[in-house]
Amino acid sequence: MDYSVEQRFYDAAARRTSDATGFIDVAARFLAEGLDSQALRELAGVPRSTRSKELRGLVQTALAELSIPRPTRDSPGQKVTQDGTTYARLPTDEVRFEIVPARELERSYEVLVYVNDFEITEAGAGMGMHPFDLIVPANQLLATAEPRRVVVARCTCGEPGCGSTEALITRDGDAVHWDWYVDVPFDHGVSFDAAAYDAAIEHLAADQSWQRPVDTVSRLVLEGVDRDGVSSIGLELSWAAADHRDPDKFLVALFAPAEKFQVFLRFQLRGRPPEEVADEVMRRLRTSPRSWSATFHSMVVGKRGRPSMAGWRWRSEDPR
């Protein structure tokens, strides 16, 4: 798509929020392309020692002289419409994803996000999200016309609640915009060609090369479990992964919201194909909880007792 010189100048202004001195070169370039105003000429000729506040003032004056709106942060992609012309960040950024062993956590993985070959996950909150947090059971990075915030990086302790980088992801025609929130990697959003973005997230979702057998079990369970069926017996699936206390076991954690109990099911993992383990998990979840061999603990401090759905083979993990 062809963009006018005014639209490209708006894009440059939207991106040059901290590197004010870079606007000296930008001004000279746009003058050479035919854009002209008194403030733009002044901006192209000022010394690089000029204070940032003065440089930004010249940028704002040039925008006004050229009848180009000031970039706003109030809409995805900094999109504004003036006199029938739409201005926004242009889809000139590039994104790629890489799944690697987590640098700060043992036996875990993270999704590194690179924008223009710059890793924003470390520059933001510090560490990428676990792949399952982004792409299983559904791809959270999918861009739609309805904006949605997605946590794309977390604190190096592993908890997004401790620190996070969030992207407001929005599809707008042939562009996909990411606008940053919380721990931002840099001070302006980024915009991608929609087709290239779709290809990048599809490639990420299709990559299963990093998965250990236990990760494959987790993926199959998270993708295949009948969540409505689990909900009908008063439970919610919280997570499914290796039991950190016994790596030979696969642990399924459920939550009983009405009674505030966490419920655990364990399955033999070692020596079994992932598909077999996942199938057993999903078959078990289709049976009555009273028939389960399960453990549980209360999520309410000081609360004792048993979940009303508990069978005779349920035992408490609460300290006595």
Score class of each variant (00 low, 15 high):
residue 1 M to P: 13
residue 3 Y to H: 13
residue 5 V to W: 07
residue 7 Q to V: 00
residue 19 D to I: 09
residue 20 A to G: 12
residue 20 A to E: 00
residue 25 D to H: 15
residue 28 A to I: 01
residue 29 R to F: 12
residue 30 F to H: 08
residue 30 F to R: 09
residue 32 A to D: 11
residue 33 E to M: 13
residue 38 Q to V: 11
residue 40 L to G: 00
residue 41 R to L: 07
residue 43 L to S: 04
residue 44 A to P: 10
residue 51 R to S: 01
residue 54 E to Q: 12
residue 55 L to P: 00
residue 56 R to T: 14
residue 58 L to N: 08
residue 64 A to C: 13
residue 65 E to C: 04
residue 67 S to P: 11
residue 67 S to H: 13
residue 72 T to D: 05
residue 72 T to V: 10
residue 74 D to C: 04
residue 75 S to H: 14
residue 77 G to M: 05
residue 78 Q to P: 06
residue 86 T to H: 05
residue 86 T to L: 09
residue 87 Y to K: 05
residue 89 R to L: 12
residue 90 L to G: 09
residue 91 P to S: 10
residue 101 P to A: 08
residue 103 R to K: 06
residue 104 E to F: 14
residue 106 E to V: 15
residue 107 R to C: 08
residue 115 V to L: 02
residue 118 F to M: 14
residue 121 T to C: 01
residue 123 A to G: 13
residue 124 G to D: 02
residue 125 A to C: 01
residue 125 A to I: 03
residue 126 G to E: 06
residue 126 G to K: 03
residue 126 G to C: 02
residue 127 M to A: 13
residue 128 G to H: 06
residue 132 F to K: 02
residue 136 V to T: 04
residue 138 A to G: 04
residue 144 T to C: 03
residue 147 P to W: 08
residue 153 A to R: 03
residue 154 R to C: 10
residue 157 C to V: 01
residue 158 G to M: 00
residue 159 E to F: 14
residue 160 P to Y: 04
residue 165 T to M: 09
residue 165 T to L: 08
residue 166 E to R: 13
residue 168 L to Q: 13
residue 169 I to V: 06
residue 170 T to F: 00
residue 173 G to L: 08
residue 177 H to P: 11
residue 178 W to C: 01
residue 179 D to N: 06
residue 179 D to H: 01
residue 189 G to H: 08
residue 189 G to L: 10
residue 190 V to E: 08
residue 191 S to W: 02
residue 212 R to S: 10
residue 217 V to A: 05
residue 219 R to Y: 04
residue 220 L to A: 08
residue 224 G to R: 03
residue 226 D to M: 09
residue 230 V to R: 02
residue 230 V to C: 05
residue 232 S to W: 01
residue 232 S to L: 09
residue 234 G to L: 02
residue 242 A to K: 03
residue 242 A to E: 14
residue 247 P to W: 07
residue 249 K to N: 15
residue 249 K to G: 06
residue 250 F to G: 02
residue 251 L to N: 01
residue 252 V to R: 04
residue 254 L to P: 02
residue 258 A to I: 03
residue 258 A to R: 07
residue 264 F to A: 10
residue 265 L to F: 08
residue 266 R to Q: 05
residue 269 L to M: 14
residue 272 R to E: 07
residue 273 P to D: 15
residue 275 E to F: 12
residue 278 A to L: 10
residue 279 D to V: 11
residue 279 D to A: 15
residue 280 E to H: 08
residue 280 E to T: 05
residue 280 E to P: 01
residue 282 M to A: 03
residue 284 R to V: 15
residue 285 L to T: 07
residue 292 W to T: 04
residue 293 S to N: 12
residue 295 T to L: 03
residue 308 S to I: 11
residue 310 A to T: 06
residue 312 W to Q: 14
residue 317 E to N: 15
